[in-house]
């Protein structure tokens, strides 16, 4: 565990907490894409199949449980909570899951570290995580007024990915045999998807203006 990895995980955790804060205290999920949240729940469900078979550390298991629990409860809140679900605008969140899920599944069947069920599912989860933010980014572009919490949520998610890249660079130079092409390439793609968002996020921050993405 290096500082970049820990900072990345903490940023990821912070993003989840920001979203839960919005849902719990403001009782709103306005501007949040249910599609993206459902994809994340699927990402964690398929990636953490090893949770009971491969013990890595207490930290690892705890974080897995947090990400699994939070992602499924967020989906539950947006879909089923009496008050929260009212703020969900289905007509704006139109991205189709299977446009992302099916190509990722096919790619996982072709490109994986080992052709076993668990490894194919793991590769699938890596590919899917890389593109799972797309429905959220599309929704942001359609939203006239992006509230601060939603902006911070997406920013923290992007920051988490950028920190993971630093973690890989660090690990590559400090560990022997540390080469993971699947995670590296997908992680790079995933981070690049945030580039546009980052640009407008920093612009709005610099100019002290409300965040708004151009159509």
């Amino acid at each position: 565990m290096n500082i970049f990895r820990l900072a990345g995980d903490m940023t990821h955790l912070a993003s989840v907490l920001v979203l839960l804060l919005k849902i719990h205290t403001i009782k709103s999920c306005a501007g949040i894409s249910l599609k993206t949240q459902e994809l994340y729940a699927l990402v964690f469900a398929t990636r953490y199949l090893d949770i009971f078979t491969d013990f890595i550390s207490l930290y690892n298991t705890t974080m897995k449980l947090i990400f699994l629990g939070s992602s499924f409860s967020i989906v539950w809140y947006i879909r089923n909570h009496k008050i929260v679900s009212r703020s969900y605008d289905k007509s704006q969140d139109t991205f189709r899951h299977y446009f992302l899920i099916i190509p990722c599944l096919l790619l996982a069947l072709l490109v994986n570290e080992k052709f076993t069920f668990k490894e194919v599912m793991w590769a699938f989860s890596i590919y899917l995580e890389a593109v799972a933010i797309l429905p959220q980014l599309v929704l942001l572009q359609r939203t006239r007024n992006i509230d601060n919490l939603t902006g911070q949520y997406v920013f923290l998610l992007g920051a988490y990915r950028a920190l993971y890249i630093l973690n890989w660079i660090y690990r590559y130079f400090t560990e022997t045999h540390y080469v993971h092409w699947i995670t590296w390439v997908s992680g790079l793609v995933q981070t690049l998807l945030y580039a546009d968002f980052f640009y407008y996020y920093f612009e709005s921050w610099k100019n002290n203006k409300k965040l708004q993405l151009p159509a």
């Binding site: 995980d9 990636r47 890595i56 690892n60 897995k64 990400f67 993971y164 022997t176 540390y178």
Partner: peptide, 10 residues
């Protein structure tokens, strides 16, 4: 040491 297919990242 070969890490095999142990995925130690989250």
């Amino acid at each position: 040491p070969s890490e095999g297919n142990i995925h130690d990242e989250l």
